[in-house]
C-alpha cells in the first residue's frame, strides 16, 4: 500500500500539506487525487503547503507546475505556500520559474490570497506613477 498525501477540504478550498519527502510516484498519485477531488467538490481554490519539502528535483518541480496548471483548468486558483529558500534557489537554477503559479509566504497569507484575489502586480506599477508623496499628502 502506497502512502498518499491527504487532501483536506476547507469550505470552498482544498488544503494539501506535503509533509513527507516527495517521490515521483507520490507526486503522480497526488496529481490524480487532487484533480479528482476538485471536480468532485467543485472547489474554487487549492492551497499547497510545501514548507516541509526540503529536497526538490526537476521532476517534482515540473509536477508542482503541472498540478497548478491542471487546477487552473478545473477553475480552481492554486497557491503554493511556504517554499524553503533552498528549494526556491534550486528551482530557479533548474530553470523552473513556475510562471502562472501564485505563491505566498505561509498558509495564512495563502488563504488570504485565495479569499480576496490580490490586485495584479502591474496595476500597482501603473498606479504608483501617477502620484507622488506630495499628492497623497494633499488628499489628507
Amino acid at each position: 500500500m502506497m502512502d498518499r498525501i491527504p487532501i483536506l477540504r476547507m469550505g470552498q478550498f482544498l488544503l494539501v500539506t506535503i509533509q513527507v519527502d516527495m517521490h515521483d510516484r507520490l507526486a503522480l498519485a497526488l496529481q490524480d487525487d487532487l484533480t479528482t477531488k476538485i471536480s468532485e467538490t467543485g472547489a474554487t481554490g487549492v492551497l499547497i503547503d510545501i514548507s516541509s519539502l526540503e529536497i526538490v528535483d526537476s521532476f517534482i518541480g515540473r509536477m508542482v507546475a503541472n498540478i497548478s496548471a491542471m487546477s487552473k483548468i478545473l477553475d480552481a486558483q492554486t497557491v503554493i505556500v511556504g517554499m524553503q529558500p533552498a528549494v526556491a534557489i534550486t528551482l530557479v537554477e533548474l530553470g523552473l520559474s513556475l510562471p502562472g503559479v501564485r505563491t505566498a509566504l505561509d498558509v495564512e497569507r495563502g488563504m488570504a490570497l485565495l479569499q480576496n484575489p490580490r490586485v495584479n502586480m502591474t496595476s500597482y506599477a501603473q498606479a504608483g506613477d501617477e502620484e507622488n508623496f506630495d499628492d497623497s499628502d494633499n488628499q489628507n
Partner: peptide
Amino acid sequence: LKTVTAARLMGAD
C-alpha cells in the same frame, strides 16, 4: 531575474 524569481517562488514580490 533569478533573484526576483526565487523570491517570487517563496511568495514575496
